[in-house]
Simulated assay, not measured.
Amino acid sequence: MAELSYELTPAEAKSRLDAGDAVLIDVREPQEHQICSIEGAELIPMNTVPQQLQHVEEVADEKTVIVFCHHGVRSLNVVTWLRRQGVDNCISMSGGIDAWSAQIDPTVPRY
């Protein structure tokens, strides 16, 4: 299997989600999640990812894990860390939920 790149665009993320072969993990803080969210995404704040590693590994065994945050910086850090832990089936959504709102779903509030 070819190695995944570290990032994909919101359009690529939507395509994978629509195909049913990916899941979303939101690594923003709970107060950010209250402002807006992407339907179906699981909230795992960045600072709790190490405690959730086994869960993320189990999810990644089944589907590609697409990680996102507000603008794509934290999610890229999380993906880099996860790959160092051996979770290869994960990728960061470039531009985060802000780009998702601008490019995919304008009903998602921007902040």
Rank of each mutant, 00 (worst) to 15 (best):
C69A: 02
P106C: 04
S75W: 00
I91K: 10
M93S: 05
V56E: 04
D61I: 06
T9R: 13
L76M: 09
P10A: 01
G72M: 11
S15I: 11
E62T: 06
R16F: 02
P30V: 01
R84I: 10
G95L: 09
C90H: 08
I104D: 03
S101R: 08
Q51N: 10
L24I: 07
A2Y: 05
M93T: 05
V56I: 15
L17K: 13
T48M: 09
D88C: 08
D21M: 03
W81N: 00
R74D: 03
T9L: 13
Q34T: 02
V49E: 00
R83N: 05
V79D: 02
D61Q: 13
V23L: 14
E62Y: 04
W100I: 01
R84F: 12
D21E: 13
R28S: 11
V49C: 01
S101D: 07
P10H: 04
Q31I: 10
Q54L: 07
A11K: 12
E62H: 07
V65S: 02
I66H: 01
E57F: 12
N89Q: 13
V59Q: 11
Q85W: 02
E7Q: 14
E42M: 08
I91F: 01
D105S: 10
E39D: 14
A41D: 00
Q34S: 11
E39P: 14
Y111M: 08
V65G: 07
V27G: 00
I25A: 03
P45G: 05
S37A: 13
V27W: 00
W100T: 10
I97G: 04
V79F: 02
G72T: 08
T48V: 05
V78M: 02
D98L: 10
E39A: 15
V78K: 00
P10S: 03
L76V: 01
I91E: 03
E32P: 12
I66G: 00
W100K: 03
D18G: 13
D21K: 14
E42N: 09
Q85V: 07
D105L: 11
V108D: 04
S101I: 06
I97F: 12
S101W: 03
S92K: 06
E7V: 08
G72W: 03
P30K: 04
T107M: 05
S75R: 00
S101F: 06
V87H: 15
L8S: 15
L24K: 01
T64F: 10
R84H: 09
L43E: 00
N77I: 00
G86L: 07
N89T: 05
M93P: 13
I97E: 01
S94W: 06
S15K: 15
Q54W: 09
L53Q: 10
N89S: 09
L17F: 06
D26W: 06
Y6S: 06
P109R: 11
K14T: 06
P109D: 10
Q54S: 14
I35L: 13
E39L: 15
R74P: 07
Q52S: 14
Y111T: 09
L53H: 05
D88K: 06
I91V: 13
A60K: 00
A11M: 12
G40F: 04
L53M: 10
S92Y: 02
A13F: 00
I91S: 02
D26Q: 09
G40D: 06
I35K: 14
C90R: 05
Q31S: 12
S92M: 07
L8N: 12
A41P: 01
D18A: 15
V67D: 02
